[in-house]
């Protein structure tokens, strides 16, 4: 199994799910940036990132999400992190990003957030 693979799945109109591999570091941070940017270009407003199997995130991995979230929010959407493990949450907390990022417990809550955060056209 590729530890760095990032997969994509459409959940519903305007909402896409990206699943990280076990690692998000310098080796695949650019792929995460590409995946988020491509999703946005494909008219997905909400990008949900499933971190359930993520074991390690480096500064480059955090930077890939942090550097793209502004663009997504500017267009009325958001990046939602969910299934975040205790250790990954610890890193986000150390970096003071726990409040800045939208973090949900599980996919159901993340999807619900996409529904309530969506503004009528």
């Amino acid at each position: 199994m590729n530890m760095h693979a990032i997969t994509q799945q459409k959940l519903r109109t305007g909402v896409v799910k990206l699943c990280t591999g076990r690692m998000l570091d310098n080796n695949n941070a650019h792929e995460m940036i590409e995946a988020i940017t491509n999703a946005q270009h494909s008219e997905y407003k909400f990008i949900m990132i499933d971190m359930s199997i993520l074991e390690f995130i480096s500064s480059a991995g955090v930077g890939a999400i942090l550097g793209t979230v502004g663009l997504v929010r500017e267009s009325g959407g958001d990046i939602i992190l969910y299934n975040v493990s205790i250790t990954i949450m610890h890193i986000l907390r150390v970096l003071d990003l726990e409040e800045y990022f939208t973090i949900k417990e599980n996919e159901k809550e993340a999807l619900a957030y996409c529904g309530t955060a969506e503004t009528p056209a």
Binding site: L66, L71, L95
Partner: peptide, 18 residues
Amino acid sequence: DHRIMPLNRRYHGFGTAM
């Protein structure tokens, strides 16, 4: 500065802070 980084589309540069 997590408020400035997204505005500048900055992806790197906080490994030292980490």
